[in-house]
Simulated scan of single mutants.
Amino acid sequence: MSTTKHGAQRERRTRNRGRAVGIPLVLTAVAAVACLAVALVPGSGTDTGRPAGAAVAGTPAGDPTGSGSAEPATGAPTDSAQPSASASAAASASPSASASARPSASASASATSKSAAAPATGRIRPGVSYQGVATAYEAADGNGACLFGPSGDMMIAAMNTTDYETSRACGAYVLVKAANGASITVRIVNECPLPCAPGQLDLSQQAFAKLADLKVGRLSITWTLLSPASAPDTLSVRYKTGSSQYWCAIQVIGHRNPVAALEMRTASGWRRLSRTSYNYFLAADGNGCGASIRITDIYGEQLTVDGLAVKPEVAQPTRVQFARH
């Protein structure tokens, strides 16, 4: 009995040791399986290959919401654990929205340059008929606000302030028609201040007399811009009194079509001058004075004049003239 009892005790101790050994083994196996399962879950790991704050493909760095990013390419994976090489390929394959929507600097600069070179037509436009009234004034020798000097042909007129447009109308030829059927071509050499209304022409008495008796006073008219054959064969250029290499003002005389712009060549390229109300183009700092001049009419034709010295109050002839339209 004693032997049997001790043997049973040893057997129980042996079974207990087996259980004690077996439980840790089972727990170890379960833990290994759990770890393996966790490792296999997509996106569960951290991407230690990308530095903190680096951009994910399609999302700018520093934009955690990605609201400004482009849509990912169709079928492209968006998993953050995607290798960086694949992310770079996806980014290069689909340009960002900002790159496709915003023009390049060179394209913008090219567009700005083209727009600046195109002349503005102003209020007086070719092919447009204007209505107004004609009045008359004593034009004396024909000089006026445009500062062309005395006029050999007194078929001249003063343009109302609105359509004068800071001397843009100076030198323009207009065909004036009265309701009675009479017509006359005049050249704009002066400005008619308020109360001259838009469309109104203040004709020299000599010109008005071609349309009606001076006693009429006011005459209903229509008028249109001309590009006449009767214009001088060539135009001239004149520097204003006081002009030098340090300050100059330039005027165009005898041009067939209204002048829209005047530029001077400088070391950095063509420089467009501002126009004054007294019909001169001004270079207040002298930059370009005495250099080549480029003149543009309202039709966009450009004429370049070289080799003119700064000679104040001298009308220097050129070899060029604007074409008829």
Rank of each mutant, 00 (worst) to 15 (best):
R125I: 05
G127A: 06
G127P: 10
S129I: 05
G132I: 06
V133L: 15
V133A: 12
A134E: 00
A139L: 05
N143H: 12
N143A: 15
N143K: 10
G144A: 13
A145Y: 00
C146W: 07
C146L: 11
C146H: 04
G149F: 01
P150S: 10
G152R: 06
D153W: 05
M155V: 02
M155K: 08
A158M: 09
M159T: 01
N160V: 06
N160H: 03
Y164G: 08
Y164I: 05
E165G: 13
A169S: 12
C170W: 05
A172Y: 03
V174G: 02
V176L: 02
K177D: 13
A178F: 03
A179K: 12
G181F: 07
I184P: 08
I184R: 12
V186R: 03
V189W: 01
N190F: 07
E191M: 15
C192N: 05
P193E: 09
C196W: 12
P198K: 11
G199F: 09
D202M: 12
L203P: 04
Q205V: 11
A207N: 09
A207K: 05
A207I: 06
F208W: 05
L211W: 00
A212V: 11
G217N: 01
G217S: 07
R218S: 11
S220M: 12
T222S: 15
L226T: 12
L226I: 03
L226M: 11
S227C: 05
S227D: 07
P228Q: 02
P228N: 06
A229I: 00
S230N: 15
P232L: 12
S236V: 01
S236L: 08
V237I: 13
R238P: 15
R238H: 07
T241I: 07
T241S: 15
G242T: 09
